[in-house]
């Protein structure tokens, strides 16, 4: 029998981590406008295997994360597939807020402590997916943060192996808003169908299929 759905509201300026087993999916729903949910992904069985954004983007010829991309580890294996979203752009090239971004503008915080709880440290950081954020280049490579998301925007991500998900809801460092009102996120974890032969992530590109094949069993 499938495990029931679990729902957790994570407030703005908080951090959280959870293991999402293979065969489950995670749904993130923004609880406010211009949300930023910075996310790190690791193989739960061995966190030395972790999300690799350069490999994910270059294998699938994309400048951003969006359905039906497969989120690939540095070992060429699927961690997750992005199965749906109300948005066609989630940033992955501009990183997460550092303490000094937040404290410089809004005063001290202790939000950046979650990794230590898990035994991870600076050496385990990698490029985050910043769900709900769009920072797009112009033709010359100059980047600009854009008003992009509103409350209710969502994304669904299917775990392709047991995945440790670490997320933080600090405002994106390029978000120019002067007000301290970081959006929270509703995290719903529930059952997911295994990707069949016609799965959009599998049929997207040969590269996506090979990363899924590497975790098939």
């Amino acid at each position: 029998m499938a495990l029931p759905e679990t729902v957790q509201d994570v407030p703005g300026a908080a951090s959280w981590s959870l293991v999402v087993p293979r065969g489950r999916a995670i749904r993130l729903e923004a609880l406010g406008d211009n949300a930023c949910v910075s996310t790190l992904l690791y193989a739960a069985a061995d966190p030395l295997e972790r999300l690799n954004i350069p490999d994910t983007l270059k294998a699938q010829m994309s400048a951003c994360i969006r359905p039906p991309l497969v989120l690939m580890s540095d070992l060429g294996r699927a961690l997750c597939s992005v199965t749906g979203s109300s948005l066609d752009w989630h940033d992955a090239i501009t990183g997460h807020s550092l303490d000094r971004h937040v404290t410089g503008r809004f005063g001290p915080s202790d939000y950046a402590t979650n990794g230590r709880t898990l035994g991870l440290d600076r050496r385990d950081l990698h490029a985050t997916v910043n769900w709900f954020v769009k920072v797009a280049p112009d033709g010359a490579g100059s980047l600009a943060w854009q008003e992009h998301s509103t409350a209710g925007d969502w994304v669904t991500v299917r775990a392709e192996q047991d995945v440790l998900v670490v997320l933080a809801t600090a405002p994106h460092p390029l978000d120019p808003t002067p007000d301290w009102a970081p959006a929270g996120v509703r995290v719903t974890v529930g059952p997911a169908e295994a990707p069949g032969p016609d799965d959009p992530s599998r049929t997207f590109r040969a590269e996506s299929a090979r990363a899924l094949e590497a975790v098939a069993r």
């Binding site: 490999d55 294998a59 690939m72 540095d74 060429g76 090239i93 490579g141």
Partner: peptide, 20 residues
């Protein structure tokens, strides 16, 4: 005039994903 820092490094594992 222009250098990349998005594309990462090649690895045997990512070569398999990209090129078989």
């Amino acid at each position: 005039g222009r250098h990349d820092t998005v594309g990462g490094a090649c690895a045997k594992e990512s070569n398999v994903v990209r090129y078989g």
